[in-house]
């Protein structure tokens, strides 16, 4: 690694008597999953480059409870929510950015009804603002002319009506954006939501990620971009299923920008 990542924790900042502009909520996948950790780091590189004063909770962060809630375990969810809200409020956090659409949905919508009101944005929105305001520039370079398609994560798109931010980012790096037939509101789930990520699929005649990967292969894109670590895993597995690893890359919007900006 060329540049060392600067990742202050809330505890460190508070000890210095400082406060961050924004809290980066990393999420469980972003913290522990090998593939997702790369996305986390790519986003941190962008934050560092743009000189954003941010912090993470580090070891004080815990699962938002999303998988428990979708599985029906409301007790566990609300326990997690209460704990996390106490931690966040203890640090007087007002603005949060997260790379996980599930954390995004939970923090933004469900925590607010439990007393934890925060201004929550998804990293694709955050990156889009950094690009628009000129805090970072990404000239395409590596991606100029590449065919990219965007897979809308359900919890970002349909769930919270964020469709344009990730697409605007992709346009800014001079790629050719192609849309799958099922996109935006009509996007097809990757198969991971609703706690499916953590269990065997129910009996059926096909895997959902395979069905979705067919859409990706259908538009003959060089890259399928997404904004969710779980979608990323599902699509990566789907591409492997068809032995197309050499033809299609699965990348997060943060990774594309970090690469394009040569970070």
């Amino acid at each position: 690694m060329e540049n060392k990542l600067v990742v202050p924790t809330m505890a460190e900042l508070t000890a210095k008597g400082e406060a961050p502009e924004v809290l980066f909520w990393v999420g469980c996948a972003g913290s522990f999953d090998d593939r997702a950790k790369k996305i986390t780091k790519a986003f941190v590189k962008i934050l560092n480059k743009a000189d954003i004063k941010f912090a993470v909770l580090g070891t004080e962060e815990a699962c938002t409870g999303d998988p428990a809630k979708r599985a029906g375990n409301e007790f566990l969810f609300q326990m997690q929510a209460m704990m996390n809200i106490q931690v966040l409020q203890g640090y007087n956090i007002t603005k949060v950015v997260t790379t996980c659409p599930h954390c995004f949905n939970t923090l933004k919508n469900e925590y607010s009804k439990l007393g934890g009101k925060f201004d929550v944005v998804h990293h694709t929105q955050f990156i889009n603002e950094l690009l628009s305001s000129g805090k970072i520039t990404a000239e395409g370079g590596a991606f100029r002319g590449k065919k990219i398609t965007f897979h809308d994560p359900c919890y970002l798109g349909r769930g919270n009506d964020v469709y344009e931010a990730p697409r605007e980012v992709l346009r800014k790096i001079d790629t050719t954006l192609v849309e799958m037939a099922r996109s935006r509101r009509n996007s097809l789930c990757c198969g991971a939501g609703g706690a499916q990520m953590f269990k065997e699929a129910e009996k059926g005649d096909k895997e959902i990620n395979v069905e979705r990967t067919e859409d990706v292969l259908g538009v003959k894109a060089d890259i399928v971009a997404t904004g969710c670590a779980f979608c990323n895993t599902m699509l990566t597995d789907g591409v492997k299923h068809f032995n197309k690893e050499d033809d299609v890359q699965v990348m997060d919007v943060a990774e594309l920008i970090a690469t394009a900006a040569d970070l």
Partner: peptide
């Protein structure tokens, strides 16, 4: 409310 927002069961709260 947003589509993926679920209610928080009050009794659990």
């Amino acid at each position: 409310t947003p589509k993926t927002e679920l209610d928080n069961l009050e009794a659990v709260t």
